[in-house]
Design a protein around this nucleic acid. Structure first.
Lengths: 202, 202
DNA sequence: TAAGATAGTAAGTGATTACTTACTATCAGC
DNA sequence: GCTGATAGTAAGTAATCACTTACTATCTTA
């Protein structure tokens, strides 16, 4: 099963750690993930983790960096070279959903991180990610209004909030059903309603 | 500050405990709420809690019962005696948002409960609540389709998912901004887009 | 007002947490 | 193939967790 050799260089070990956390978050409450559980998942002793990360919070920070990088890169790749703003938004939507199906722990971590009262580095990364997401959406929405594809009187800020909420709603349904794949089926149906809500003329 | 007398009858003490948990969940990750923190919030020693609840899980169960009761009662009261299905949905939406503003810990608890792998009583209550919510929505949606207020070709299931997701999106935004009141301002704007998405003719 | 029941305190319990320390195995470069 | 640096183990640490126990204060009511 685990093809990894025993000794890994520090940077690879850190990468493996991040992946272990992302995987664990897919099946349990992220805030209940212990360093012991992370180590077990990687076939490592618990103490060894602290040779690569000074604290547990540093692990979370690395995880959020991983998420922000990969998700934004994917969204950009999905929207790139699509002329129509609405079509680009749909591509972003679907690729975000695919990302969540691959890594169901991610939205749980995001939501969990945003809750704490204290402002940890991980929380700030989560905030930055969502803001960057919102900016990309706003650019597309404005473009769509200019091109006539979108309702010119559309409330852009509300439309961006609803876009992200729509995905959050799909996540919630998948948690309810205990079935992540379900998102793939529901996503186009839900997006169709959203598109009708923001479009210029049904 | 605390007008409560020292000795409370068991049922009142349980009620106070539930309220303490709901309040705490408004300012920290629900899964990190300890029995010590709950007791502190009520000016009680930690051990005393276990005179009224056999386990911590039993506390969570009582909290979820409280939530389900109060939220559903409010939704029903809001929608009652409103003829138009769409207007009833809007009333439900706004009263749900008001509920969340009063008790910001509630959506966090719900989302957190739905995550665990094991099926606790609290988790089952959360599932039941959302299903009951969905049923109420579906009834209104079907009524709206019949009356012509809603798009006859509307995907009812997707519309219910989106309704709940819309609120979840507002919660997410309020976590980002660190300002719950913001929901009150954004809710009508976001619902307007939703209504356009499900309505019969813009 | 005495007495039994109820609700509280205070100081425990073992298990588990993030993190440390002392030592050992494996690597890369000469 | 030696050697110094790196990455691992195993057994600790104090703090904190949910929960218990022994005792005490406060209610209710006959």
């Amino acid at each position: 099963m685990d093809t990894q050799s025993k000794h890994l260089p520090a940077d690879e070990r850190r990468a493996v750690t991040v992946e272990a956390v992302v995987k664990l978050a897919g099946s349990q409450n992220p805030s209940e993930i212990t360093t012991a559980a992370i180590a077990r998942q990687m076939n490592l002793t618990q103490g060894a983790l602290f040779r690569h990360f000074p604290t547990k919070a540093a692990i979370w920070q690395a995880v959020m960096e991983w998420v922000a990088e990969r998700l934004l890169a994917r969204l950009d790749r999905a929207a790139r070279s699509i002329e129509s703003p609405v079509a680009a938004m749909e591509a972003m939507f679907m690729s975000h959903v695919e990302f969540v199906i691959e890594h169901p722990g991610v939205p749980r971590m995001m939501f969990g991180e945003l809750q704490g009262a204290e402002s940890t580095p991980a929380k700030r990364l989560a905030q930055t990610l969502i803001r960057a997401y919102g900016e990309r959406l706003n650019r597309l929405i404005e473009k769509g209004k200019a091109s006539g594809e979108l309702n010119a009187a559309l409330d852009s800020e509300a439309a961006a909030t609803l876009f992200i909420g729509t995905i959050q709603g799909l996540v919630m349904q998948s948690l309810l059903a205990g079935d992540v794949e379900r998102m793939r089926r529901d996503a186009p149906r839900v997006f169709a309603i959203y598109r009708r809500g923001i479009g210029s003329a049904p």
